[in-house]
């Protein structure tokens, strides 16, 4: 574990403030994906975002998915990459592939 940025501390602080929080985690990568498995992002219903799961190319789509996860309370496993452009509109410019697990903090 080498992430200098402590997403868990941020997520815990937001939850303590009464925010609804979702956590997105890179669970698997192939090819030249910019952030390794274990990279995380925290998202609140009110729109706050911390951390990252890519070089910036898919954060928007992950934040959108997090909003729906916070509504339904059902976790989602998202697939991003060149071969999945049909499933998700966002691809990775670097040609890598990542899977991102999005879940509510409960």
């Amino acid at each position: 574990m080498d992430n200098a940025e402590d997403i868990f501390a941020t997520a815990a602080a937001w939850a303590a403030e009464g925010e609804t929080v979702a956590i997105a985690t890179v669970t698997e990568t192939w090819g030249s994906s910019p952030r390794p498995a274990g990279s995380r992002m925290a998202i609140t219903k009110s729109g706050r975002i911390a951390g990252s799961v890519s070089g910036g190319c898919i954060e928007g789509a992950v934040a959108d998915a997090a909003q729906s996860v916070m509504q339904t309370h059902a976790p989602k496993l998202l697939d991003f990459g060149v071969t999945n452009e049909m499933a998700w509109e966002v691809g990775l410019a670097c040609g890598g592939k990542v899977k991102v697990f999005v879940e509510p903090l409960t």
């Binding site: 574990m1 080498d2 985690t25 669970t27 698997e28 990568t29 390794p36 498995a37 274990g38 899977k99 697990f101």
Partner: peptide
């Protein structure tokens, strides 16, 4: 090493959280 593994027909994300350097 952090990643996804198939264990007993199920997909598990396993994250190694060693102390920071």
């Amino acid at each position: 090493k952090t990643g996804t593994h198939t264990i007993g027909n199920e997909s598990w994300f396993i994250e190694a959280r060693n102390p920071p350097p």
